[in-house]
Computed example of a mutant assay.
Amino acid sequence: MNSTHSDDDCDILLSEEEAVPYFYTIYKKIFILVIIPIVAGLGILGNAALLFVVYRVPEMRTVTNFYLSNLAVSDITLLIITTIRFMWSYFNTPIEFAFSSFHFGCALVWLITYLCYFASVYLITLVTFERYLAICHPITHRMLKGRTWTVRMTISAWLISLVSASVCLHFYETETICIDWSNSTTFQNIAAKFVVCKAVTNCSWCWPTLAAIDFVQFVLAVILSSYMYGRIIYALSTRTGLTGETSSEKQTTILRTRNQIGRMLILNGIIFFICRGPNEIYNIDDFKYWLVGERMFESKTATTILWFSRVMWLLNSAVNPLVYSVSNQRYRRAFVEAFRRVDKRKKRSSSRNGNENIMISRS
């Protein structure tokens, strides 16, 4: 490489021209400065609102909503860590994914990112499984829907996600890049050293293994969920009533609610897998390159797919509360009720304070 820089601490020496691919393009700047703040802000508010509704409305404290609440926590965490990851890099250095001297940031960022990613996959599958049992195997569902079972399944999902994320963490490293700015008039006041968080380069099997771990878990979740979606749709389309000594009106209400929740979760799951699909296409391309030395896409196309997959990741984490409220009347009523209770409490508090002030003035 053409560089006059001679620092023993550097892993890679680059000239200014060779460093160009590491710089932020206009599209990446739009993603970081426009898309991330908007999507992350809306997603954090929406998911926080869902958690608030489940907390405030007792009727919403169901098994399904317990899983969805954990999914909301995962989405909020992913949105926050993604925002910090890109903003830290952008405002500290002109180099993409540089962490300045913050070496620990590489491990922390990717551990949390993969933890939330895998947790969301397992939690979506758990939600589907819970609805599958409720609609297709109601007797089994009544036996397993207790708090102990639900908590155990949730903890298991997070633990498996943590193990998977810890394995993936070994495939990332920090690398010190030195750039020669001696002939530059634009970057003379910028540091010449950058610590870049990147995939391991001296390991031919590491990145394909990472892609395989991600892809296999995703495909298994798709297969299982597709099977359960099919059974749920069939059961909803063929069931006409409920057994037991229940009034006709109550049966109709229960069936309508159950059907709405079932359809909502199917829609939510389909959106989830569609949003995560571009990332898996990118993984397949990487895996093919490792096997046969050829890629399905040109370099520019692969980069476009990568950044598009990042946009879809963020959208998926932000869109879930919108899906719940748009597709299910029960959730819309719960949102209104939760925030109406807050408004009533504020009015009572204001009225009480006003009465106290009147009593004080009279005395």
Rank of each mutant, 00 (worst) to 15 (best):
E96D: 01
L220V: 13
Y55K: 10
N2E: 02
F287H: 08
I84E: 00
V196S: 07
A338G: 02
S225Q: 05
V151K: 11
H137I: 06
I160N: 12
S351T: 14
I190L: 13
V336E: 01
L42G: 10
V326Y: 02
C116D: 02
Q188I: 12
T201I: 07
S309Q: 07
E249F: 15
V342K: 14
R348K: 13
R131W: 12
T154I: 07
I76Q: 01
V292E: 11
A212R: 12
A191M: 14
I36F: 06
I81V: 02
I135Q: 10
L111V: 05
L108H: 06
G43C: 12
L42T: 09
A49L: 09
R333C: 00
E130S: 10
F99P: 00
V222W: 09
Q217F: 13
S204H: 13
Q251E: 15
S164P: 08
L315A: 03
L111Y: 09
T301N: 01
R142F: 13
L71K: 02
R256F: 15
Y282T: 09
C203F: 07
V222I: 13
T77K: 04
F171N: 06
M60E: 09
L111E: 10
S164G: 11
F104Y: 14
L68R: 06
S363L: 07
T185Y: 13
Y114R: 01
I261G: 05
H170W: 14
V34Y: 15
S248E: 15
M264D: 03
F23D: 06
F308L: 04
I36M: 11
R341S: 11
L123S: 04
G293S: 05
S6G: 00
F171T: 09
S74T: 08
E96L: 03
L68P: 04
G269N: 03
D75E: 02
T240Q: 11
K250Q: 15
G241S: 13
M60V: 05
F91T: 00
Q260G: 12
E337S: 09
A157Y: 08
L314S: 03
R239I: 05
R152P: 03
E96K: 03
I81T: 04
Q251H: 15
T304C: 03
T257D: 15
V200M: 11
V336W: 03
V311P: 02
D8E: 03
L162M: 15
R231P: 01
G146M: 07
T209I: 10
S15C: 03
M153N: 12
N357Y: 08
N70Y: 11
F91R: 00
L255C: 15
L68T: 07
T252S: 14
S182D: 13
A134C: 12
M87L: 00
N202Y: 14
T238I: 06
I358K: 11
K288N: 12
I12L: 05
W313P: 01
I81E: 00
T150E: 06
E18W: 04
K29Q: 14
Y289H: 14
I81Q: 01
L14S: 01
K145T: 09
G277L: 10
E17T: 04
F118S: 05
K346A: 07
F339I: 05
R295W: 07
W181L: 09
L210A: 05
S327P: 00
K28L: 13
V319G: 02
W290F: 12
R348S: 11
A211F: 14
S100P: 02
R258V: 14
M143A: 13
Y24A: 05
T140Y: 11
A235Y: 04
V57L: 06
A221P: 08
N283Y: 13
R231Y: 08
I254G: 14
